[in-house]
Design a binder for these strands. Structure first.
Length: 455
RNA sequence: GAGGUUGUAGCUCAGUCGGUUAGAGCGCUAGAUUGUGGUUCUAGAGGUCGCGGGUUCGAGACCCGUCUCCCUCCCCA
């Protein structure tokens, strides 16, 4: 027999952690609802045909695949084994764990399009799985909180996402953050401009590292990735732009010949304008040409949120996707959304010590169990406490008081009711304050009164 | 997927050059105290040294493999 262990990249969440996590979930859910999003849940696993090809090659590889049940290898031939793992995978696995919440949502929209009031706004809070190598702030099972709008290409949705983030993060205590915004159309335009159409993928990957490794290294990497000297020269303005907060005018001059880039810039300007009208106090948004994001389905705005003063990756990301439902046979439904990573938000809050103290979740009063007679007496009082809305429990075994008080102490139960022969005779119970050690004689009703006031 | 690193009691960690019965602190259990927790004192329990193989008279220590933790890259929440 071997000791039990957790699967790589997974965690248990004990009671204290769950109290904190629940606080995050509740805060986010409340905001989602306030913006008119409706709840949705989808299955933990989907057919691979739904998931494959939506996240890029890298994403396909990070999908957890589920082995077909039963004799999955029975029909395999020798040739199947020799063709390599990719063709083999499709023969032995047809389901996979969900990788994000956006693709299953798109599938849901396609399957239910006749019944949904468009534009359709939904939120979804569920775990997702990625066969990644775990690291700080990176897990193989983690929760995402998504809010998406489909069925409209109004840029109001982008502006509302900005606003939503400015509601949620401060409500969690995260005041220092930055919402980075870019637009895929601009990136496409840039690739076009420098004569490297369709190469925005590698382009993004390289320029994304600008603030990390510096201009010279980025140029080096671009050349390595197959960009010509001329292309790299034409990219020069990027290195200047990257320092500006709102360099839309400069961008327009530089990319004047690219229709698609101009469209992207115009979209961003509109979002900025709308954010101003919505009146967010001190909006923490920033244009970032180097923001790319790997998910291949984005076509318009892209978002990423970073918490400042902590070394944890982005806590939220999202963007607009014009043709995700198109991959399921229903084109023309544009959507946009964001995803908040609960586990990273948790890590940020833990590191910055942002969790509120008060936790009304646990027991407020425990009835001690001195002997069989007192136990029966206490049993009658227990439901009265609970009916009055007081979290209460009775110690189940007639063991030494020392042990019972120790239990109450360790659960941080603030009050204990002591019942002995005196108390049963007089009806006046002893209420002990565990923090101060004070004890007073009160009737059951008086105790309920006193404790109700404390809530 | 590539590279590096870690693993000894429930937790944090010692363990010398390869050598007797693997230790400490905290925690846990019991008692001191038969109606009173936190402090104190006393006693006790608790180990497949991640797992599998190898070298050796002898391995917690050395070698190989494997799993896991953490880190860098890639990518991402």
């Amino acid at each position: 027999m071997s000791k039990p262990s957790l699967a790589r990249g997974t965690r248990d969440f004990g009671p204290e952690q769950m109290v904190k996590r629940t606080f995050i979930f509740d805060t986010i859910r409340r905001s989602f609802q306030r913006y008119g999003f409706l709840p949705l849940e989808t299955p933990a696993f989907e057919n691979l045909s739904v998931l494959m090809g939506k996240y890029g090659d890298e994403g396909d590889q990070l999908l957890f695949k589920i082995l077909n049940s039963g004799d999955f290898s029975g029909k395999l031939s020798d040739q199947d084994w020799q063709e390599g793992y990719k063709p083999l995978t499709s023969k032995i696995s047809e389901k996979g764990l969900r990788y994000d919440l956006t693709v299953p949502f798109a599938r849901y929209v396609v399957m239910n399009r006749g019944t949904l009031a468009m534009p359709f706004k939904r939120y979804q809070i569920q775990p997702v799985w990625r066969a990644d190598r775990p690291q700080k702030g990176r897990y193989r099972e983690f929760y995402q909180c998504d809010a998406d709008v489909v069925g409209t290409d109004s840029l109001l949705c982008e502006a509302e996402i900005v606003m939503l983030l400015h509601d949620i993060l401060p409500a969690l205590g995260i005041k220092d953050f930055v919402v980075k915004i870019n637009n895929r159309k601009i990136l496409t335009g840039i690739a076009e401009m420098v004569g490297a159409s369709g190469m925005e993928g590698p382009l993004c990957v390289a320029i994304d590292k600008l603030d990390k490794i510096g201009k010279d290294k980025v140029v080096e990497e671009l050349l390595e990735r197959g960009f010509s000297e001329l292309s790299v020269q034409k990219l020069e303005p990027i290195f200047v732009l990257s320092n500006e907060k709102e360099p839309f005018a400069e961008l327009k001059t530089w990319l004047a010949d690219s229709e698609i880039a101009l469209k992207g810039i115009q979209e961003l300007e509109e979002v900025w304008a709308m954010v101003k009208v919505l009146g967010i106090e001190n909006p923490q948004i920033e244009f970032d040409v180097t923001l790319a994001r790997g998910l291949s389905y984005y076509t318009g705005a892209i978002f990423e949120v970073k918490a400042k003063n902590v070394q944890i990756g982005s806590i939220s990301g999202g963007g607009r996707y014009d043709n995700l439902t198109g991959t399921f046979g229903v084109p023309g439904i544009s959507g946009v959304g964001i995803s908040l990573g609960v586990d990273r938000i948790y890590d940020v809050m833990e590191e910055l010590d942002l969790f509120p103290e008060s936790q009304n979740a646990s027991t407020q009063v425990m009835i001690s169990n001195f002997d069989a007679e007192a136990f029966t007496f206490g049993l009658a009082i227990l439901p009265k406490l609970r009916k009055a809305g007081i979290n209460a429990e009775i110690y189940p075994d007639s063991v030494k008081l020392k042990k019972q008080l120790d239990y109450a102490d360790r659960k941080s139960i603030p009050y204990v009711i002591l019942i002995g022969s005196d108390e049963m005779q007089s009806g006046m119970l002893t209420l002990k304050n565990m923090k101060s050690g004070e004890q007073q004689k009160l009737s059951a009703d008086e105790i309920i009164n006193a404790l109700t006031k404390e809530i």
